[in-house]
Amino acid sequence: MGTAERVVEVLVELADTLVTPFDVIEMLHVLVERSVELLAVDAAGLVIADSCGALQVVAASSEEALVLDLLELQGKEGGPCVLCFTTGEQQVNLGAAVVSARWPEFAAAALAAGFGSVHSLPLRLRDDVLGAVNLYAAAEVRLSAEDVAVGQALADMATIAMLQERAVREQEVVAQQLQMALSSRIVIEQAKGVLAERYGLGVEESFGVLRTHARRTGQRLTDVARSVAVGGELPLGIVRP
């Protein structure tokens, strides 16, 4: 099987991981494993930013790659993937001399682990950078333009998948919030009706009673309305028959 055919197979495999139920971690592990298979590298690691913007290691093809990624994130000088994430730009074909000059601590650890070159590709869609993929090679191998394009295509697919998963979760949250708001509105209307009937109040006045009681007692408006509409409890301290 030729390289092009295998690349197509891998893209299909990654696409299959997006089928519900979507497992982000499984998809990212497939990404690092296939990056090693398709490119002239010996190990790969992947980092993404958490909700606070701090990079975290989420997948690695080997223990050596995992340790190097952790060292890079925990060290003061950073490294290729930190720079890649910060700038959103590819950091490729970085040999031992270049890495040593920029990040001596990371370079020493990489050499000790048996890696002579490193490459980092961003998980990026336009201006949204989610993380980076680190690619480690034992020799000072230069990735061809075709290799870089393949690696970036894999990273781009992972980025789109994660952004899509985030959008779905956000839509679900919004839908839940809207449903809660609708349910709360119904309960409030019911409570207004109870107060209006019991005390002969107008609709607006009944709503004012509910809000005032909620503020004075430190309760949520919906909870006060529910206690009136469902539990039959009335704010007698405010409204007297």
Rank of each mutant, 00 (worst) to 15 (best):
G116Q: 06
G116I: 10
H119D: 15
P122T: 11
R124Y: 02
R124A: 13
R124H: 02
L125Q: 09
L125I: 12
R126N: 14
D127M: 05
D127C: 02
V129Q: 01
V129L: 02
L130C: 00
L130R: 05
G131R: 02
A132S: 08
L135I: 04
Y136R: 10
Y136F: 15
A137T: 10
A137R: 13
A137N: 10
A138R: 14
A138N: 11
A139G: 14
A139I: 08
A139V: 14
A139Q: 11
E140V: 11
E140Y: 04
R142I: 11
R142S: 15
R142N: 12
A145D: 14
D147Q: 13
D147G: 10
G151E: 15
G151S: 08
G151I: 13
Q152E: 15
A153L: 15
L154R: 06
M157S: 12
M157L: 15
M157K: 09
A158Y: 07
A158I: 12
T159L: 09
T159N: 02
A161Q: 10
M162I: 14
L163E: 00
E165C: 02
R166K: 13
R166Q: 11
R166G: 01
A167Y: 06
R169D: 10
E170N: 13
E172P: 01
E172Y: 04
E172D: 08
V173K: 14
V174K: 08
A175D: 07
Q176C: 06
Q177C: 04
Q177S: 14
L178C: 07
Q179T: 13
M180K: 13
L182N: 06
L182V: 09
S184E: 09
S184A: 13
R185N: 03
R185W: 02
V187E: 08
I188E: 10
I188P: 02
I188S: 04
E189H: 07
V194S: 05
L195W: 08
L195K: 05
A196F: 02
A196L: 03
R198G: 04
Y199F: 14
Y199H: 09
Y199Q: 00
G200E: 00
L201Y: 02
G202W: 01
G202L: 02
G202A: 08
V203D: 00
E204Y: 05
E204P: 01
E204V: 12
E205D: 14
E205K: 11
S206F: 06
F207T: 05
F207N: 11
V209G: 07
L210H: 09
L210R: 09
L210F: 03
L210I: 15
T212D: 13
A214K: 08
R216G: 01
T217C: 08
G218H: 02
Q219M: 06
Q219N: 03
L221G: 01
L221V: 08
T222R: 15
D223E: 15
